[in-house]
Design a protein around this nucleic acid. Structure first.
Length: 425
RNA sequence: GGAGGGGUGGCCGAGCGGCCGAAGGCGCCGGUCUUGAAAACCGGAAGGCGAAAGCCUCGGGGGUUCGAAUCCCUCCCCCUCCGCCA
């Protein structure tokens, strides 16, 4: 949520920042409602102060056994006036809130300006895409030939964009999850969590998925929603809390399944593991002080990169431009892994600093160690990394001419030393 | 799912409709004492909005009342017993 005070004080600057994201919004309605609300609020508060004072006098009179009929009658009028004022104020508050919840975050000044993904800026590359002496296949062909990916039965059980993993495929999924968790827990200083995969709407509002993106989510008949990412339960852990400043930064890591409706992406990535309704992900989340959040974003990104480096998968890091930025993010680095079957880099992790946007929605604050006023924390998160897409990248990057796939060395301890997945004879 | 009991400050816990933003205890901070610490004693501090006056906050929302932590309705959460269950 964008700070209402900021909109009130610098509407021009905010409007321009939103313009850079390609969001053509007018702040006029918010500003008008805000002025009205503050005017009404003042009147109501003065009436309340008056009532509190006179009620005190009534109490005193009663104590002394005196009547106070005139005061009581007057206060009844004041009460009536307040009763008509309150809905007026509330109506404006609700409307302001609804409008604020629709506004995306303001981009950080370092974010490259641009209209679409074409304007994203490459930051660095790691690893050399392998040269093949045969035409590299797409991972779905490789996986089906190996008998480890079963899209047909996934469709039979649940529909398109669902997959069944068989044998070594299922083991590989499990190995990747454990490998990623171990790396972040043991070497990068994250604390492991296990969370609900169903959350309430307040949690989704806190991180920014609701109210605007309900269509992207699976909802149950019990007012609970399937999480689209572990970002939601982890960030909301500290919703409505004030954290001790000396505990920051907090670094959390969790594996969860993720569920996305993928409404509106019917044509894209219809085959393979890239775009599934259900997928596994290891997620990193940080709560930091405002002063250190951009340093922590750099660290978060390199923590995610470490996964790909250990697995020897070539990738590039890209800074998203203003037009490609997600709704809640102030700045985002995407990690894109090389996919030989498609001959391009594909997103496998997205590392973002949300600054106080989520903290303000979810009321997550910290109290500075020296004491004093509570401030909003900055929240960050990043995939560390998407498991299904990692499996796809391994299949494509490590495929051999004979149809087999070699297992990256870092993963072998998690697969009883298995070095290679062989096609069935 | 059925029956019952609860949600009050960092924690525990008291609270006749008005002097209750809230006793007391624990914990915390400062001080006295001590070589230092502990103990003891003294003192201090709830949160939010606001420049301030002031307003709001006793699980959430609504109602009754001149006035609600206290009465009523409703929702949420927790606990106990029964049923069901991995």
């Amino acid at each position: 949520m964008v700070d209402l005070k900021l909109i009130r004080e610098e509407p021009q600057r905010i409007a321009e920042a939103l313009q850079a994201r390609g969001v053509g919004v007018s702040l006029d309605e918010i500003l008008t409602l805000d002025a009205e609300r503050r005017q009404l609020l003042r009147e109501a508060e003065e009436l309340r102060a008056f009532r509190n004072r006179v009620s005190e006098e009534i109490a005193e009179a009663k104590r002394q056994g005196q009547a106070a009929e005139r005061e009581v009658a007057r206060m009844r009028e004041v009460g009536d006036r307040l009763k008509s004022l309150d809905p007026e104020i509330r109506a404006r508050e609700e409307r302001i809130d609804a409008l604020l919840l629709q506004l995306p975050n303001l981009p950080h000044e370092s974010v490259p300006r641009g209209a679409s993904a074409a304007d994203n800026r490459e930051i660095r590359r790691w690893g050399e895409p392998r040269r093949f002496d045969f035409a590299p296949k797409a991972h779905w062909e490789i996986g089906e030939a190996l008998g480890i990916l079963d899209f047909a039965r996934g469709a039979k059980l649940a529909g398109s964009r669902f997959t069944v993993l068989w044998g070594v495929g299922a083991q590989l999924e499990r190995a990747l999850i454990t490998f990623m968790l171990d790396l972040h827990i043991r070497e990068h200083g994250y604390r492991e969590l296990w969370t609900p995969a169903l959350v309430n709407s307040a949690s989704l509002r806190g991180t920014g998925q609701l109210p605007k993106f309900a269509d992207d989510l699976f909802q149950t008949q019990d007012d609970l929603w399937l999480i689209p990412t572990a970002e939601v339960p982890i960030t909301n852990l500290h919703r409505d809390e004030i954290l001790p400043g000396d505990q920051l930064p907090l670094r959390y890591c969790a594996y969860t399944p993720c569920f996305r409706r993928e409404a509106g992406s019917h044509g894209a990535d219809v085959r393979g593991l890239i775009r599934q309704h259900q997928f596994d992900k290891v997620e990193l989340v940080k709560f930091t002080k405002p002063q250190t959040s951009y340093d922590e974003l750099e660290l978060l990104t390199t923590d995610a990169e470490a996964v790909l480096q250990r697995l020897e998968l070539p990738y590039q890091v890209v800074a998203l431009c203003t037009g490609d930025l997600g709704f809640a993010a102030a700045k985002t680095f995407d990690l894109e892994v090389w996919m030989p079957g498609q001959g391009k880099y594909r997103e496998i992790s997205s590392c973002s600093n949300f600054e106080a946007f989520q903290a303000r929605r979810a009321q997550i604050r910290f109290r500075p160690a020296a004491g004093g006023k509570a401030e909003f924390v900055h929240t960050l998160n990043g995939s560390g990394v998407a498991v299904g897409r990692t499996m796809a990248a391994i299949l494509e990057n490590c495929q051999q001419g004979d149809g087999s796939v070699t297992i990256p060395k870092a993963l072998r301890p998690y697969l009883d030393g298995l070095e290679r997945i062989e096609p069935p004879r």
